[in-house]
């Protein structure tokens, strides 16, 4: 069967073809722009506190700094979230959990690293129990600071939204956690 839509040929299994067609449809400009706009205002981070930066993250999503106005609502289950925010030091034991949480999140998913500890160890750079999260995940935004102020968190959300709206992310590509242990 030759599809009337330009550019793709659909053969074989009906269900698979339908999925392909819908994917193709989503990637086309007006729909794609709409989709990106929607994603950018529903960045829901999974509630995954890894270290002391969590205190500032909590402050960012609370009344004074109110990150919820960007459509940013910390949520409990990784199945319903699309943003992993590593809040500070990632220890070796926690890295295992982080990988599992990341794998459970649906596409498209984004990663923000918060705090110098998550960037490159920070004050704990010579500790024997930490990992560098950027070796495990594809990272979208880095927030430096120890701890970063809540304003910095808010700014990182805006930066990520802009990135999403400009279609600078790739769906389902390079989103497998890397590295052992």
């Amino acid at each position: 069967m030759v599809c009337p839509l330009m550019g793709i040929v659909l053969v074989g299994n009906l269900e698979e073809s339908a999925r392909k067609a819908s994917r193709w449809f989503l990637e086309k400009p007006p729909i794609r722009n709409l989709r990106d706009w929607a994603i950018s205002f529903s960045l829901w981070p999974v509630h995954f506190t890894t270290s002391c930066c969590g205190a500032e993250f909590a402050a960012a999503s609370c009344p004074r700094f109110d990150a919820e106005r960007f459509g940013f609502l910390p949520f409990l289950s990784p199945r319903q979230t699309n943003l992993l925010l590593i809040e500070g030091t990632l220890t070796r034991k926690m890295a295992e959990a982080a990988k599992i949480v990341y794998q459970q999140m649906p596409e498209p998913k984004f990663v923000i690293l918060m705090g110098v500890c998550a960037l490159d160890g920070g004050i704990f750079h010579n500790s024997y129990n930490i990992v560098r999260p950027h070796e495990l995940f594809p990272v979208d935004v880095f927030i430096p600071g120890c701890p970063p102020r809540p304003e910095a968190v808010a700014r990182s959300i805006i930066m990520l939204q802009r990135k999403v709206r400009n279609s600078k992310y790739i769906w389902g590509d390079g989103h497998e956690p890397k590295g052992e242990d």
Binding site: T50, C52, T89, T91, M94, F124, S127, N129
Partner: peptide, 8 residues
């Protein structure tokens, strides 16, 4: 089960 934030 603690030790998830053990930063030595």
């Amino acid at each position: 089960d603690i030790g998830y934030v053990h930063r030595t």
